[in-house]
Amino acid sequence: MPEYGAAGQGGTAAREVGGFLLRRREQIAQRWADETLFRTVFTVSREEAVEAGRTVVEALAQVAGADLSADPEAPGFLVVREQLSQIGSARTRTGLTPSQVSHDVDALRPPTVDLLVADLPDAAPEAVREATNVLTVLMGTLRLVVMETALSEGQALIDRQRLQLLEMTTPVIQLWDGIVAVPLIGTLDSARSQIVMETLLESVVEQRARFAILDITGVPTVDSLVAQHLMKTVAAARLMGAECVVSGIRPAIAQTIVHLGLDLGTVVTRATLADALGYALRKLGTDIVSEASHGAGER
């Protein structure tokens, strides 16, 4: 029974806070507009900041009114989630750490508490403390929601960048008529190897390339899986009627391949991209001659 009473009292305090937030939303929004968080996010005009602050305060009032102060999943927050994520991501983009953003959000609390205390001049100290408690919890939840949206924003950014990286790091270059090359840079994993294989084979068809050069100068390490992928790419290119040359195998990688006991016997390898190009050109019946021998020759 006493618990029920306490809960009822809490409910009253929450409703009171909700009412206060709704009544004073204009004032609170004005105060918030001066805080770092709103000032730095809404740089265009103060009106914009006040408007955004008002929306957030209204949402908070609704959450408090529903007595869900401690629930970050409260329906009230859903309305302003977009706004909050905008705030959160704008702050994160400027290079602030999550804890700094959290601190910024927390800075909204003191002015609001001041206003609340001023709003209840004749209330019993007990009731005032109760109301401040509710407000503190509510602001804590707001902080949590902002952090959550900011973090999910960061995750989305990482996902987007990973995709971009996959696209960026596999350029297929046409070195000569009928010769394409892929300079591989960075660590290869299964997903990337797959994309390399696909883009290379696609370009073999597109450019009608009889030679495809896989240059792995920029690949720091090779494990058995990557080596297997290389072999598969070479085999698939051969099935399509193109010859695949692997170039730029570093001494350390060669050592690793030998230690792993992998047989690259069927793969044509050359020390550098230039050697591979020379090999392909010769096979195509084209040759590059230096100026000196050109002059000395009968041509």
């Binding site: 698939a236 099935l239 399509m240 009627g241």
Partner: peptide, 14 residues
Amino acid sequence: VAGMRPAVAITMVE
């Protein structure tokens, strides 16, 4: 064998 498509070549190798 002529004109094998990339997807087919990959499948064959797999």
